[in-house]
Amino acid sequence: MTRTKRGNFFIHLLLIAVALTTIFPFYWMITTSIKPSDAIFQVPPQLVPKSFTLEYFPKVFELMPMARAYLNSTKIAVLVTVGTLLTSSIAAYAFAKIKFKGSGALFAVFLATLMIPGQVTLIPLYILFSKFNWIDTHLPLIVPAIMINAYGVFMIKQFMGGIPNAYLESAKIDGASHPRIYWQIVMPLCKPAVITLGLFTFIGNWNNFFGPLIFLNSENKFTVPLIISSFKGVYTVDWGLLMAASTVAIVPIIILYLLTQKYYVQGIAMSGIKG
């Protein structure tokens, strides 16, 4: 008994040490963003700020179109999330619960595309979107993300596979069509998987840097990550300002994450261990 207790004590020490390493950069970011510049450059650094300033935060919004970027990022992430949840859940339903010709082979094709890195499709997509006159609009960031999400189809299909067919049979006997069974019976049961995929999609698209970097040119169309990268380009060592910009970008995501935290752990347990 005492042996396990002591063991647990050391494990807690270790866990606290690791948790400190993961949290500390965020703490450092926030404290730097509220320190006056002489305090920022002080050696050794003040771990707990002794004086406060909020001078950097208004600058974040004045020097760059940050408010606009917020709107852009939110718009893109919301549209993609809603769209992808719909398209991937109906496809998942078809693969899991409808016996149609060729479903096995088509599903295998979906799984195979998980292997294709985005870089191979990047240049042709750029060409395609410039033919559509989509460059410097948000469409290249929204439409493909809604139309193809092999990972999402896979994840929800795995979850739907676990719903007993008996649940559907009685509805079928009552004459319910597939759209009704999908919406009224299967989807409510898939809530955890749908919420998890929704969160992953929202945050993934919010954080996306490569796509916006390539497809957007005008500053008023920029997303938050692009604006952050512009800050670094212009105000290279203005640490207070850079950290204030990072704080503005990260804190909402941290709040969203803390509110929805259990779904991530669940989702990873759901999708990770499929040998």
Binding site: M29, T32, F209, P225, I250, Y257, Q261
Partner: peptide, 18 residues
């Protein structure tokens, strides 16, 4: 532990830059 993964954006690279 999972926090860095969620915030794996350009902003966090900037924090490391600092």
């Amino acid at each position: 532990f999972f926090l860095p993964m969620v915030t794996s954006s350009v902003a966090i690279v900037l924090v490391w830059y600092w």
